[in-house]
Amino acid sequence: MRSTRNVVEDEKQYSDPPLLVLASLANGPKHGHAMIEDIVGLCGTRLGPGTLYGAIARLEKQGWIAPMAPEERRRPYRITAEGTRVLRARLMTLRQFAKAGLGRLEAL
């Protein structure tokens, strides 16, 4: 079960559903099913439908993503300007963290 907290579930899968959803929407609007498949391609993590919509609901309430006009029963979402800013800040932090961590490992 994936929570919405930052969790590294195993050695290869990174799981932070809101961040994954933001990253998935960074290259264009997507509906739920497309987001799940895109996130699998992005980092190997397959979000469950409940986890995905938990993240979508929270991101929408925070104004970081916005719903678009429905396509039959599916509804695409797009990232907002504020969401883009948040995603960039989070990824920059992760990059600094990864750089520092890998630097320490190289020293071993």
Partner: peptide, 11 residues
């Protein structure tokens, strides 16, 4: 009311 239809379709 807000997400039911799209969530059901996803399932």
């Amino acid at each position: 009311e807000r997400y039911g239809e799209e969530f059901e379709e996803l399932l």
